[in-house]
Each structure stands twice: as structure tokens, then as C-alpha cells.
Design a protein around this nucleic acid. Sequence first.
RNA 1: GCGAAAGUGGCGGAACUGGUAGACGCGCGAGACUUAGGAUCUCGUGGGCGUGCCCGUGGGGGUUCGAGUCCCCCCUUUCGCACCA
Length: 840
Amino acid sequence: MSYDPIAIETKWQQRWEERGTNVLSDEQLRTAERPFYNLMMFPYPSAEGLHVGNMYAFTGADIYGRWKRLLGETVFEPIGFDAFGIHSENFALRIGTHPMELIPRNVANFTRQLRRIGAMYDWNHTVDTTDPSYYRWTQWLFLQLFHAGLAEKKEAPVNWCPSCKTVLANEQVIAGACERCGTMVEQRTLSQWFFRITHYAQRLLDNLSWIDWSESTRKAQENWIGRSEGAEIRFTVASPWQATPHTAAADAVDRARAYHRAHPGAGEFEQHLEIPVFTTRPDTIFGATFLVLAPEHPVVGWITTDAQRAEVEAYRDRAATMDLVSRKKADKEKTGVFTGAYATNPANGAEIPIWIADYVLMEYGTGAIMAVPGHDERDFEFATQFGLDIRRVIAAPGESDLTPLEAAYVGEGTVVNSGEFDGTSTAAAPALMTRWLAARDAAEPRVNFRLHDWCISRQRYWGPPIPIIYCDACGTVPVPEHDLPVVLPQVDNYKPDESGVSPLARVEEWYRVPCPRCGGQARRESDVSDTFLDSAWYFLRYPSARRDDVPFDAAITQRWLPVNMYIGGEEHAVLHLLYSRFLTMVLKDLGHIDFEEPFTTFRKHGLLIKEGSKMSKSRGNVVIPDEYIERWGADTFRTYLMFLGPYQEGGDFRDQGLQGPYGLLKRLWDSIVPVAELGNEVIAPELERRLHRTIRKVTEDIAALRYNTAIAALMEYMNALREGGRAISRAEVEPLVPLVAPFAPHLAEELWEQLGHRDGIFTGSNWPAFDEDKARADTVEVAVQVNGRLRARLQLPLGASEAQAREAAQADENVCRFVGESAVRKVIYVPDRLLNLVVK
RNA sequence: GCGAAAGUGGCGGAACUGGUAGACGCGCGAGACUUAGGAUCUCGUGGGCGUGCCCGUGGGGGUUCGAGUCCCCCCUUUCGCACCA
């Protein structure tokens, strides 16, 4: 009987299904004593089907889960589908099939493929984000945030493609143009729903210090949150704003007033106009020679002089229509316009000009900066271009206040040209000067974050409707929880149009609704929510997926969460993982759960390339798992994927590479089948030693996700087993079955059965224990060096003393030759490893 | 520009806190069995020559008895973020 992977795999997939091997009962969910929640990032079910990247990710996670199970833990390993979103909708539009028809078809195909790869998914606890029984709770989540004051509606700029008539995400804008039609993208301002994730910025940052995550992922989040310490400094507008109120647009004045109300530090608007700026370098305040405001800054219309008005308006119009991506290009030439107004530098009383320029962003800090061209590269470039003053206020060691600046000096040094602060070091100056400015009521210390509030509105069709109703009498009214879900209606024409309003607004019978509060005529919010909201809480839903009366069962959640191991792609290092953390914190604060970090351990997996180059449809080198599985079997394919490189770094997929892992499985089959009927025999001492070393190595490597070296160790042992062509005993080969089981679960089950075990290998604690004593050898090879160069390798008893080692070394012919007549001046001895004789 | 990671045979990749570089696999070479199969098995496989020595981990310096590993400078690649004040 030869190894027939397809037959074995079919048999065991059927068995698992019949026996419910991978399914957790309600009882287990409620009472498991050693629960282990093993999670992988759920896929977006594309029409192309499961690709090898998905399979790589899932297999690596599955191996970990199966290993935990062999250790006797109760492992919950669910899978689901992240099927809402622009991605699916655009694809549906292109091929002309409605998403409500397309998605179930894709999900069915994915399910078939996922069953075939041999992962131990619990198919009784799946999640589909497009199912009303799921998004009902996504909407519930929105309401919790709304009631907590963490959801607010405000205006924000978006990318707009005038040809596709739709809002684009930043990732869909390539070099200023729409990725699909190539039309130049514009900026539009729409009123949208935001979650106040910025309120949690500090906590999201702080917790990074203790969660067990891949280092690169933690760093990415840290950078994304972007904490900066500095000061907010207020500059008074000196002139001539009083002279021009009649020419300012009324709404600009209103917005300026509102802005000043929101920034209490900005002073009394009617008496004197103050512009607050954020800086991380308050120690350079004496070098601030002009201010720059973002073009959309609310006070611009108010301070601009008549003489400059036309030019300023033209610049603002241009900035307003430019797309958000190309505007933020750093290598673009600096542009800007003088407003005609001046502000007073609170440090030295100097009157400095106020400019507007698009290199200053409204969404960061206060939307205005004090420009210090001497010590900021961007300001230096701007000042050089427009002939503005450049002042040195920091001197590097060896420089004086008179050394000319040829470029911005951004390093450390000593304060100069700054009155009483001259001579202070840049280490001490920021705090000192902030305090000094604060005493004059012109500044206070401030911490700023790069993180922005999370815009969850999408003016599209394929998503969960945001559960809000607008009533002329009652205003913004949340949909009562008992009215959830707000079901996404079946709409034939779901294509977005010119208006920038969601297609749902065109569905009269859905859009018009009585106000839940007063019963009067009202209308629904027609935007749907971001796909990232669906995926930000799905891990909470899985264990409770069979409950339809609550989003998550309290007792089950208590037992199973937070997730013990989460494995996924680095591409979700920020958005998905950050949003999940944020929502978990919110749910904790609202008393729904008792933990605030959703994933105790997170590990990123690497990316696969094909024969040295990136896999892509255009290259035509995308690996489709189905073909390989058909030819080699899922076990070989899984094992190969894990063998081709370190899991957390990815690797190169080469067709010929499957041969090696196939050989391992085949040889395992060939050596077990003949001994299956035999009882346990005595194991050869040398093999026993190697066996226990192999058990130790495989155990440690799997725990650390070093699957490639775990497989290599199995191969090594298999080679040793076959050495010399002698007969293999059952005791020598049987332990390999559980060791290989995480990688090749079908084969392992079959062999386990043939070895006479009645229960499946994954239903008990069948992972072999390693015995340190048995792993130990009597003798070890010790390297002998003379002057650091290898001259001999000696077999010495384990734990040999230095004297013994030296004696053995001096008896070696080659060693003698190199030592010669010289005296040994120094001896370095690392027991059981190395002896180095220094004779120089 | 900032951040992260990485450069090792023909190729994918091993090498724990500095201690025998190249495990394991692919490929290749030779042989066996075969009548021609993308099968299986055995042996060999970093380079060089004087066959036990020399040279070898992107390049150049350094520390050390000893460096792929640590330090400094440079080059290259990949991946994030990118005018964040």
C-alpha cells in the first residue's frame, strides 16, 4: 500500500465532519478548563477564490492551534468572512452582478476551499459580516459609542472622483488620479460620522508597552499614533485685521468665532485676534520670523488685507480642489501666499508676516505654525523661496550666533540670539522657555497626536446602514435598539452618483421613516459604515455566534477572551488592529467586558513571493492552491508552505520545492505501515537520544512559530532512522506521528489509526514529552583551535575537564604540528564545545 | 526624509546568550533498479591547490584568544509612514 494523500484526506475530512472533531459544544464553550482561543484574520471572500497568501496565513495559524490541541488544551479556532466594503461593491459593479448574489456565491466557494486545506475550523461558529444577524450588532456597537458621546458628526474633506462620481479612499488615489479611471481627483467637504479614537490615543500608546505583539507591529502603531511633546504658543495678530471686517465672508467670521470658542486659550476674539500654533521646539521661538496657516484655516478670510485678497482667494480655491494625496507630497515645491497681515512674536515683540501655504495641514496641531527657517528644513525652503528672514537661534558646538546658515540646523546645541536665554542648552531650553512664555500668558505645554478621529461614514451601498434618523423636530435620533437591525435594502441601482450622497438616499420607502421619538416625518442616515468597523469586533462574536439575543454572551466571553493567539498580516498593523483595540477599550469602559486589550499575543506572518518576484495578477504568477492540493495533497502543500522560509518573514514559493516535504511524508508512511502491527520494541540508544532531541527542538520551534526549522528537524531524524538500511522499530518511529500532525493532520490521523489507536489523534494530549536525560549523550565533539583556528575535532566524554581536554588535544598529531615548540600562553576552554590554545 | 527588517553556496534557507559557517530542502553530478517515467534508492556536492592547508557570510575599518553574530563608516534590497511643525 503506497501513500495516497488524496484518498486519506478525503476520508479524514469526512470523519472530522461526522465526529464533530473540530466543533466546540455549548457545554465546552461554557466550561472548558484550558480554553485556548486561536484566531486568524478572517478573509475577504473575493471572486477569485482563496489564494496562496490566505492559505499561508491560515496554515501557519492552524498549525499553532493543532499543536495546542495536541498539548491537551481546548482550542477554539473559528473562521468567517469579511464581505462588506467598497472592494466587493466595486467588483460587483464591474461584472454587473448584485453583491447580494455575488457574495454568497464567493462565500460558498471559499468554504469549499477552506474545508479542503485541512484546518480545524469550527464551522458551527462562523461569522459573515453581511448577515443581518451579525451587522445588527455592528449597529448596536455604533449606538453604544453614540450614547457615550464617542460618535460625532462633523465636516471633513474627502477625495472625490468627478468621473466615477464617488468618494475614494486615500489608497485609491494614485499620483493625484483615480486608480480606476485616471481622472484627477478633487477634494470635497462632506458631513460625516467620526469615532473619537483620539480620546484613547494615550492609552492606545501606553498599552503597547505590555502587550505581547510582533515588535514591528507595535512600532507601526506607535508611529501611527505619533505622540509629540511641545507647546502651544499664541501669536497676536498685530495688523490690520480691524480694518477689514466688512470684506470678510460672514461664514468665515462665524467659523473663526466658533474656532476661538473651541480654543479657550485663543483669547477674546472681539478684542484681539490670537492664532495658536503647536511646536515641538519652543526653544526656537526667537527664530520665528513668520507664521504660516493652512489655506483652510478659519481666520484667513478675516485677516487678509484687501490688497492681498484676490491672490489669497485664488490660492485657497486651488488648494481646496487639489486632491489630498498629491497635496501632501513632501517633494513638491513649496507654494504660498502672503495675507498682508502681521502677528507679534510673543518672545521678542517682532512683527512677523502671516502667510498661507498648503504644506501646513489643517488636521494636525492647530492648523498653523510658527516658521523657524533657521532650524526647520521645510520652513528654510519656504523662506529661501520667498525671501523671508532666516535667523539663527541655535548654535552647534563650535559655531557662534554669527555663523551663517546654509541649511536649516536641526541638531542639538546652545541657544543664541535669544535675549536672556543665550547660552542655555537645547536639552533644558524647551521647558524653560515654555514656562517663561506661560508666565506671560502666551503659551502652555501641549501634547499632540498624529492620530485622527476615525471617519466611519461611507457614501456607498454595500455596508451596514448607520442606525441614525434625522427628524426636523427632534434632530439626530438614534434608532432604538429593539428596532435593530436596520436592514440594508435590496436595491438594483446601487451605483453612486454625482451628489456625493449614498445611493440609499434614493430609496424613498426606506429613506423616509417616522421619527422614533415624535412619530413625525423623518429620514434615515443614508451612509453606511466602514468595513473596518465590521472587522473591529468580530473576534467577540465568534464564541457567541449561536446567540441571537446578545452580541456576546457574558460568561462565554469571560472564559474565552481576550484572544490567546492572533496571527495575521502586517498590512493590518495599524488600521484593523488599532480599531479593534480602541473598541475593546470602549466596551470595557462601558462595562460590557472586563479586559481592554483584545489580543494577548499577536504575531505577523511574512509574505510569499514566487520564484523571486512578487505575485500579481498582471505578472500571471499567482499560485492557486487548488491545483497544488490536487497534485500533492493538502498535507504536502501545508508542510511545504511552512518549510520554505521562516513563517514570520515569508519566503519564496518554488514549484520544485514541494518534493522535499512530500518525501518526508512518504517516508514516514513507508516506515510506519510495516511496523504498525508490531508491539513496542527496544529503541537503539543513539536513536533514542536523537528522538528526544528532535522532540525538544520541534516543541520549541513550533512554540516560537519557527516551523521551517521544526520540519527540518523532523527530516533530520527521518534521515537518521533510515541510515544503513536497517529495520526500523515501532518505538523509533511512532512518536513522529504526533510531531508531524500539526503540519500533516490527515496523514497523522491515518497513521495513528493504523497504529491501533481508536480515538483521533487530536482528541487527546498526544504530544510526546521529551526527557532531558534521554537527550543527553555520553560523548561530545569538542573543537580544538590553535590561535583561534580549527585544527582538530575530538570525541570527549560529556563534561570533560580542561585538563582532560588538553591532554587529548596534545595527543593529536595535527594540533602538535601547530603548537610546535612554542609555549602555550593562554587556554580558553568552553566545556563540551571548544578548546583554544594560544601560543603566539 | 523618518521608522522597521534584511544582505550567507547555483537556489530557498540553517547557525542558541560571540565558540566547529553552510543544518534541512531544491537543483546538480555519479551509480543502482529499470527499457526510457516529472518514480524510487545509494553516494557526492562553497571555492582553490600542494589533501590538510589557504580563502570564504554586501564593502571597508575596529574590539576579541575567537566575529555571520558586537562597535563605527559606507553600499544595496524589501516593507511601513510620509510636508505631523
